Simulated assay, not measured.
Amino acid sequence: MNVIELVDNMSEEMYLRLKHAAETGKWPEGTPVEQAQRDSAMQLSMAYQARKLDSDQMLTIGSDGEIVHKSKAELKQQFKKSSVARQDSTDASKTSDNIARFTDL
């Protein structure tokens, strides 16, 4: 089985385990990962991101197999959009019933 077939048949749970091992040097249950295992886990995680995840997040692997890089202006624009969307959703959920009230101590 080659790497492409392996990644195509990999479950999301396995991807998350491999990603955790590559990031921390330990398996999720706490067993240490050898350097060769960590290198393989990193390669498989990157291949999974490229093949299955459609992410445009900074420093992830894009569908073209390249690391996603963004300029400072692009990141500012992205964060501005997400903060505006978050602000709109919190404004909509605020009503007079949701105000915290404190008594004098």
Results as ranks from 00 to 15, higher is better:
Val33Tyr: 08
Leu105Thr: 15
Phe102Asn: 15
Arg17His: 06
Gln78Pro: 02
Lys26Met: 02
Met14Gly: 00
Met1Ala: 10
Arg101Met: 10
Asp39Phe: 09
Gln87Pro: 03
Ile99Ser: 04
Val68Phe: 07
Ser11Pro: 03
Leu59Asn: 09
Val84Met: 10
Gln57Ser: 10
Lys52Glu: 00
Gln37Met: 06
His20Met: 04
Ser40Cys: 05
Ile99Asn: 04
Lys19Ser: 11
Ala36Leu: 09
Ser11Glu: 08
Glu29Phe: 01
Leu75Gly: 05
Met42Trp: 09
Met46Asn: 06
Glu12Ala: 11
Asn2Ile: 08
Arg101Phe: 14
Arg51Pro: 01
Met42Ile: 02
Ile4Gly: 04
Val33His: 05
Leu53Val: 12
Ala85Val: 10
Phe102Val: 07
Ser89His: 09
Ser82Val: 11
Phe102Arg: 13
Glu34Cys: 04
Lys26Asp: 01
Ser83Gly: 04
Ser55Thr: 07
Glu29Arg: 01
Lys26Arg: 12
Asp39Gly: 01
Ala85Ser: 13
Ile99Arg: 09
Lys26Ala: 00
Lys70Ser: 04
His69Ala: 12
Ala22Gln: 02
Asp64Tyr: 01
Asn2Trp: 11
Gly30Val: 01
Leu16Lys: 04
Met10Thr: 04
Glu34Phe: 09
Asp54Glu: 13
Thr31Cys: 01
Leu16Trp: 01
Leu59Thr: 00
His69Leu: 15
Arg38Cys: 03
Gln35Phe: 06
Glu74Trp: 08
Asp54Ala: 09
Ile67Trp: 10
Ile4Lys: 09
Trp27Cys: 03
Thr103Tyr: 15
Glu23Pro: 01
Ala73Gly: 06
Thr31Ser: 08
Asp91Ser: 12
Thr31Tyr: 03
Gly65Gln: 07
His69Phe: 15
Leu105Glu: 10
Gln77Trp: 10
Ser40Trp: 04
Gln78Phe: 08
Ile99Tyr: 06
Met42Cys: 08
Glu74Ser: 10
Gln43Asp: 06
Gln57Leu: 12
Val68Ala: 01
Glu74Gly: 03
Gln35Gly: 05
Lys72Cys: 03
Asp91Ala: 07
Ser55Pro: 02
Ala21Ile: 06
Lys81His: 07
Ala36Ile: 11
Leu105Val: 08
Gln87Gly: 08
Glu74Asp: 13
Leu75Cys: 14
Ser55Ile: 07
Asp97Val: 02
Arg51Thr: 03
Ser96Leu: 12
Lys19Leu: 14
Ser82Trp: 14
Asp64Gln: 02
Ala100Asp: 05
Leu16Ile: 08
Met14Leu: 15
Asp104Ser: 10
Glu5Pro: 02
Lys19Glu: 08
Arg38Gln: 13
Gly25Gln: 00
Met14Ile: 03
Trp27Arg: 05
Ser55Gln: 04
Ser89Ala: 15
Asp88Leu: 14
Asp97Gly: 08
